[in-house]
């Protein structure tokens, strides 16, 4: 079109000259400011073109149609050229400005600090979620407990040798009240309140009067209890095997070793194949290939007697694990006491 226009403008030498010069200056403008100057000079009210267009009535008659027709077209063309040049210049300026803004991208980003859940809580939640997914509820109970729930109803009558295995904290002036030594008393409380089927896990703080490199006077347990019409030891084994694979990896295996607990019969200890050496034997598993993770067994009929369940109608299994032990095995923690030092340098690692 501009080439057409050039041809057409030849009909009026003055107009042609104005146009040519304006096009040249717009094209030469190197900055937005120069371009603005060019706009004022060539398209402003006082520009030659504006004056020429305003003077049409005074022009000779033969010039009037030419200037009228092509003058406005020239003006439009110049406005377009101006806009195009403006766009060009701005793009260049933006590019240069951005090019000058070089951030040191190796500096760290703005911090949005996040805290950390204690590793015990993380581990406990992971255990809870696994069993919740299997259909278990989470039950809770008192930490200051009576010896009836902590021992007697768990088939550990007074004078039973197993009582001496527990170093128990007692409450002052209340010889039958103590800090629970395991979360098992909640089993009894749940079964007293509810008829079978019962599928619960019981997490919580427990206390034993012991303090050295491998014992803290308070620690955490998760107890599990399943009582129904048809529960077998095979169900216990399958449940714990699935649990071990969930916590320690799909390649893990478990084995049951017979053991003794007053409230289960048969009783077992459960080992998981060593996650460090894969079962080949290493220092962590004392070269046995196995690590003990929990105790379990079939609920002793005497326990059912205490909660008025009928041992010929229901069977059940129970298991109990130390949360700290699970966490230590999983994360390679060597000193139990670190859990309770509450040093940020420990907690904030997880």
């Amino acid at each position: 079109m501009n080439d057409d226009l050039k041809e057409q403008l030849k009909a009026h030498a003055g107009l042609a000259a104005l146009y040519e010069q304006a096009v040249a200056e717009i094209g030469q403008a190197a900055t937005s400011a120069e371009l603005e100057e060019a706009r004022v000079r060539h398209l402003g009210r006082k520009s030659g073109l504006s004056q020429l267009l305003r003077s049409i009535p005074e022009l000779p008659a033969e010039e009037r149609p030419v200037v009228g027709k092509y003058g406005n077209r020239a003006r439009t063309a110049l406005e377009q050229a101006l806009a195009a040049r403006k766009h060009e210049l701005e793009a260049g300026e933006l590019t240069r400005r951005l090019a000058a803004e070089q951030a040191d991208i190796t500096l760290p980003g703005e911090p949005f600090p996040r805290g950390h859940l204690h590793l015990i809580t993380q581990t406990q939640w992971e255990i809870e979620d696994f069993f919740a997914g299997l259909g278990y509820r989470i039950a809770e109970g008192p930490e200051v407990e009576t010896s009836y729930y902590n021992f007697t109803a768990l088939n550990t009558p007074e004078g039973h040798p197993a009582r001496s295995l527990h170093d128990t904290f007692f409450i002052q002036d209340k010889p039958d009240v103590l800090l629970r030594t395991h979360t098992s008393p909640v089993q009894i409380r749940v079964m007293e309140k509810e008829d079978p089927p019962v599928y619960v896990i019981i997490p919580g703080r427990v206390y034993r009067r012991d303090s050295d490199a491998t014992h803290t006077p308070m620690f955490h347990q998760v107890e599990g209890l399943a009582v129904d019409e048809h529960i077998t030891m095979a169900d216990l084994k399958g449940t714990l095997e699935a649990f071990a694979k969930h916590m320690f990896g799909a390649g893990r295996e478990i084995r049951l070793r017979p053991h003794y607990f007053p409230f289960t019969e048969p009783s077992v200890e459960v080992d998981v194949s060593c996650m460090i050496c894969g079962g080949a034997g290493c220092r962590s598993c004392k070269h046995s290939g196995w690590l003990e993770i929990l105790g379990a067994g079939m609920v002793d009929p005497n326990v059912f007697g205490f909660v008025d369940y009928e041992p010929d109608e229901v069977t059940g299994f129970a298991f109990g694990m130390g949360v700290e032990r699970i966490a230590m095995l999983k994360h390679g923690i060597t000193d139990l006491r670190m859990f309770y030092d509450n040093d940020m340098r420990f907690i904030n690692q997880f």
Binding site: A132, G135, A234, D235, K237, E241
Partner: peptide, 17 residues
């Protein structure tokens, strides 16, 4: 005890979570 097969309780008529 190694000969006992691993199974899961079946027909659990309970709601967990």
């Amino acid at each position: 005890l190694g000969l006992i097969p691993p199974t899961l309780p079946s027909d659990m008529r309970v709601l967990g979570g």
